[in-house]
């Protein structure tokens, strides 16, 4: 097993939110955030953070980047090792925040050089990174002239400035065209091959499922499940679904020990298709032996949305586009009344 590069132990951070009272208009109380997070990141792996809006993904990334100080718990290289200070984290981590809107008259190269000063990196490193992220041809362009995709590339270049051991990416594919996104994914793969560990928060994890080694499902500031996609699905009681298509009379799947709830049947003209759960491995052989004409048999693992819905108890129909106010409350209460 690969060595640990970052281990969060009971990490907590809660944002202060305004809660004015008539005699205390400046009053603030602890609000949403992350609660007692345990997470381990291994060398050369990609961890995908998934969760609905307001789940705490960005807060967790900021804590890992050393931008927000831990209020409770610790971050270290591994269990039993010395806790990292925020300076240690900033030294080791490259952080790519979501949607940085670079603006101004200064050039792309100047903007990168300015931040390179903070990491004591020179012009050679800056030029190399501009080449790596595909901005070499735009290095003298003003920041105001960049498209959103180019700004994303520039932000990635900043994140890579310090040759980080850990790379934190918040919605990295936003604004990238399909070709750019594919190139980006290829770049992530090459970085992991070089031993860089990546934490990736994205609403488009479906598109990154081939890159992600492990998933962490977040909701209301907690990690509800963490592991490989199969492990997470299994821990949530989700199983692979089988799609069967055929011609002629459809089979009565009840005869093959399947409940009605496990069968979703569609029929059109002379063809039919069925989506089945909890399927025995011998079912295909039994259908063929019973002279049914099977044209397609495919197995689909549970997707991220299904995992998320299973983990949070939400369904797509119930949630819609609304951000539930309950998303901002912790699942558990800590020490009774809010401070």
């Amino acid at each position: 097993m690969e060595e640990e590069v970052l281990c969060l132990n009971a990490a907590s951070y809660r944002h202060l939110i305004a809660a004015p009272k008539p005699l205390k208009p400046w009053r603030r109380v602890k609000g949403p955030g992350i609660f007692s997070i345990h997470l381990s990141l291994r060398k050369g792996t990609v961890l995908g953070l998934v969760g609905p809006n307001g789940a705490g993904k960005t807060t967790l990334l900021r804590v890992m980047a050393g931008i927000l100080p831990l209020q409770d718990g610790s971050a270290s290289k591994g269990k039993g090792t010395r806790a990292y200070s925020v300076h240690d984290l900033r030294q080791r981590v490259g952080h790519m925040p979501e949607q940085v809107r670079w603006q101004g008259q200064k050039s792309v190269r100047e903007a990168l050089l300015e931040i390179a000063e903070m990491r004591q990196k020179g012009e050679k490193r800056v030029d190399g990174l501009l080449h790596l992220v595909g901005l070499q041809g735009r290095k003298n362009s003003a920041l105001n002239e960049l498209s959103q995709g180019m700004r994303q590339r520039l932000t990635l270049a900043v994140a890579l400035l310090g040759s980080p051991k850990i790379l934190l990416l918040d919605e990295p594919l936003n604004g990238l065209d399909p070709v750019g996104a594919a190139a980006f994914i290829a770049l992530l793969k090459s970085l992991t091959e070089r031993g860089v560990s990546i934490v990736l928060s994205s609403h488009q994890v479906e598109g990154l499922v081939d890159v992600v080694d492990r998933l962490a499902l977040m909701h209301r500031g907690h990690i509800l499940a963490e592991g490989t996609a199969e492990e997470v699905a299994s821990s949530l009681g989700l199983e692979a679904k089988v799609t069967v298509k055929g011609l002629g009379e459809p089979p009565a799947f009840g005869r093959y020990n399947l409940d009605k709830e496990q069968i979703e049947m569609k029929q059109k003209d002379d063809s039919w298709s069925a989506q089945l759960e909890n399927v025995e491995p011998e079912l295909l052989k039994k259908l063929v032996d019973d002279d049914f004409t099977i044209t397609e048999w495919s197995i689909r693992q549970p997707n991220v949305v299904e995992m998320l819905c299973a983990a949070t108890g939400q369904s797509i129909e119930d949630v819609g586009l609304e951000v539930a106010s309950s998303a901002y409350l912790p699942l558990r209460s800590f020490g009774g009344e809010e401070e």
Binding site: G66, I67, V93, H95, Q99, V100, M118, R119, V158
Partner: peptide, 18 residues
């Protein structure tokens, strides 16, 4: 304030320079 609104401040704050 401009750097904060644009997100560049977050990048600066994540750098190891005190």
């Amino acid at each position: 304030s401009r750097e904060r609104a644009s997100g560049v401040l977050e990048l600066r704050l994540s750098q190891p320079m005190p």
